[in-house]
Simulated assay, not measured.
Amino acid sequence: MPQSLSAPPLVQDTALAASGRRVIEIEAQALTALAQRIDGSFSAACRTILACQGRVVATGMGKSGHVARKIAATLASTGTPAFYVHPGEAGHGDLGMITDADVVLAMSYSGESDEVLMLLPVLKRQGNPLISMTGRPGSTLAREADIHLDISVPAEACPLDLAPTSSTTATLAMGDALAVALLEARGFTADDFARSHPAGSLGRRLLLHITDVMHGGDDVPRVSQDASLSQALVEMSRKRLGMTAVVDAQGRLVGLFTDGDLRRTLDNPALDIRQASIGEVMTRQPKTIGADQLAVEAARMMETHKISGLIVVDGEQRPVGALNIHDLLRARVV
Rank of each mutant, 00 (worst) to 15 (best):
L5K: 12
A7P: 00
Q12R: 11
D13L: 14
A17I: 14
S19I: 12
I24A: 12
Q29V: 03
Q36I: 00
R37V: 07
D39L: 02
D39C: 05
G40P: 00
S41D: 14
A44K: 13
R47V: 00
T48C: 14
A51G: 07
G54D: 13
T59H: 13
M61W: 01
S64Y: 02
S64F: 06
K70T: 08
A72H: 04
A72E: 03
L75Y: 02
G79H: 04
G79W: 00
T80E: 10
A82N: 08
F83W: 04
H86K: 01
E89L: 06
G91D: 13
D94S: 13
D100C: 11
A101D: 14
D102P: 02
L105E: 04
L105F: 15
A106P: 06
A106F: 02
G111I: 02
E112Y: 07
E115C: 13
E115P: 11
V116N: 09
Q126Y: 01
Q126D: 10
L130S: 11
M133L: 15
M133K: 03
G135H: 08
G138L: 13
G138R: 13
S139G: 07
S139E: 13
D146T: 03
E156R: 02
P159F: 00
D161T: 00
A163G: 12
A163V: 15
T168I: 06
T168P: 07
A170P: 08
L178H: 05
L178A: 09
L182D: 05
L182K: 06
E184M: 12
A190S: 14
A190D: 14
H197P: 05
G200P: 12
L202S: 08
G203A: 14
R204E: 03
L206A: 10
H209D: 07
D212E: 04
D212L: 04
H215Y: 10
G216Q: 13
D218E: 15
D219M: 07
R222Y: 01
S224T: 10
Q225A: 09
S228V: 05
A232N: 06
A232E: 12
L233W: 07
K239F: 03
T244M: 13
A245Y: 10
A245T: 05
D248K: 01
D248A: 04
Q250S: 12
T265W: 05
L266S: 05
R274T: 12
A276K: 03
E280W: 06
R284Q: 11
R284F: 04
R284I: 06
I289R: 00
G290V: 01
A295T: 09
V296L: 13
A298D: 07
A299G: 09
R300Q: 15
E303W: 11
T304N: 13
H305N: 13
H305Y: 15
S308M: 10
E316L: 09
R318W: 09
N324R: 00
I325H: 00
A331C: 05
V333N: 04
